[in-house]
């Protein structure tokens, strides 16, 4: 279920103990059954702490924050963590002031949105990084994310034992997820994949992938950091690229992340 601005405000009031009892009960019932809403509550909880530290709560909110919100030892720990994080970020940006002007690493990757104003030197660096990255992935790179690796086998159309969409949970110790997309038959020179949300929002694209053989089956293997995924429905769109460079859609591989 989607979360809107009204929900966000209601959650904020709820966390501060300022919500009407009836409304609070309705919200709690939804929190128990709606994973998206629950994650929103966790996010707003962190945002309230950050706003408290930044002195951006109203006087009434500040009072409730201190008298109600902070009563739980768990939140006192979260407040300490937020202070440490703020201190770390401040120190890091003082040490590396260029960070503010720097593009995120994603923008250097060959599968991200093109950036128009690169200089020739930057383009060369980009090319080297892009080629290295692609080669690593073509070689089935095991570049490590912190935490364990979860392998998920997906079939085209997502049908599995009676047409169910593949579901899996991401436990906190999972650092990255390796998707093995089973190929339906015809071979192409290269393959491209695009990870999208159920609503069509593109999260990640990968190009120039080549098949591997796993358990006797040809698959396209892609590895993603677990942080790129959250509790929701997704699909991976697979495209084959012919020797002439023509792109042909092969299939969709839907899946659902059910936790944490």
């Amino acid at each position: 279920m989607k979360v809107d601005a009204t929900d966000e405000e209601r959650i904020r009031q709820y966390l501060l103990g300022l919500i009407a009892p009836g409304e609070g009960s309705q919200l709690e019932e939804r929190l128990l059954t709606d994973a998206v809403l629950y994650e929103e509550l966790l996010i707003v909880e962190d945002e309230l702490i950050d706003q408290h530290l930044a002195g951006r709560l109203s006087a009434a909110e500040q009072k409730s924050f201190e008298s109600h919100f902070l009563n739980a030892p768990e939140r006192q720990r979260k407040l300490r963590f937020a202070r440490s994080l703020q201190k770390y970020v401040t120190h890091a940006s003082q040490k590396t002031p260029e960070l503010q002007a720097k593009k995120p690493v994603f923008s250097l990757w060959p599968f991200s949105k093109p950036v128009l104003a690169y200089s020739a030197a930057a383009a060369a660096v980009l090319l080297v990084i892009g080629i290295s990255w692609t080669l690593l992935h073509r070689a089935g790179s095991t570049a490590t994310q912190p935490g364990s690796l979860l392998t998920v086998v997906l079939t085209p159309g997502g049908t599995r034992d009676g047409g169910e969409v593949k579901r899996f949970a991401l436990s906190p110790d999972v650092g990255s997820v390796q998707f093995l997309l089973q190929l339906p038959g015809e071979s192409y020179t290269f393959y491209s994949v695009r990870l999208e949300t159920a609503e069509g929002q593109v999260i990640e694209t990968r190009e120039k992938l080549v098949p591997e053989v796993v358990d006797g089956k040809k698959v396209i293997s892609i590895k993603l950091p677990a942080q790129a995924l959250y509790r929701a429905d997704f699909q991976i769109k697979l495209v084959g690229v012919t020797a002439q460079g023509q792109e042909e859609p092969i299939g969709n591989y839907p899946f659902r992340v059910t936790g944490p």
Partner: peptide
């Protein structure tokens, strides 16, 4: 810059923060 919606960024940052807290 990341080519994602603002809310997706918010969720991604939260997830990284949560993993940091656990760590």
């Amino acid at each position: 810059q990341l080519g994602i919606a603002l809310n997706a960024l918010r969720i991604r940052a939260h997830r990284i923060r949560t993993s940091l807290e656990q760590c």
